[in-house]
């Protein structure tokens, strides 16, 4: 194991980006990492707000029109290797905002996230539960850790 991958395995930095959902998912993710009850930090998973430090990008929300560009830029700013986790019904399929009219999707919503950046793991739920987020991040980790 190289020094780089050794150190990467011991400090996984998660960045949360928020693209216009209802705040429910975001707070559950912050809760899941900071709150002592779930405490992802004990598994060496940390929350960061800086894309250049991040390894895992967690995206919530249906990607509104004005958020599309920043999301792409943020994805590009993260150094390789990187994984993307889409969390919540909004990020997975546009949620209520996109699909409520059936065949005529709302024009304000550019999502789901898959249309804009590649997604490695998906976490369902509205809002996602902290346990599910942990398992989603864990499911995405092999790609990150096995990278050369």
């Amino acid at each position: 194991m190289s020094l780089k991958s050794y150190s990467r395995a011991r400090a996984v930095h998660v960045m949360l980006v928020y693209t216009g959902g209802c705040n429910g998912c975001d707070i559950e993710i912050v809760n899941c990492i900071l709150s002592p009850k779930y405490d992802a930090e004990q598994y060496k998973v940390f929350l960061t707000w800086n894309p250049r430090e991040a390894d895992v990008l967690v995206v919530t929300g249906p990607v509104t029109r004005r958020n599309e560009e920043p999301l792409r830029k943020m994805y590009e700013a993260i150094p390789e290797p990187k994984v993307v986790v889409a969390a919540g019904a909004c990020a997975l399929m546009g949620g209520v905002y996109k699909n409520i009219h059936g065949d005529i999707p709302s024009e304000e919503i550019m999502g789901p996230v898959e249309n804009i950046i590649p997604v490695d793991a998906k976490v369902p739920g509205c809002a996602v539960r902290p346990e599910d987020i942990l398992s989603g991040v864990v499911a995405a980790l092999p790609k990150l850790l096995n990278a050369k």
Binding site: G20, G61, P62, T64, R65, R66, N67, V96, Y97, I100, H101, S106, E108, I109
Partner: peptide, 14 residues
Amino acid sequence: GVNHRGVERIMEGL
């Protein structure tokens, strides 16, 4: 204005 999803507009007619 970054998060605008137009909830009222979606509500219209439901």
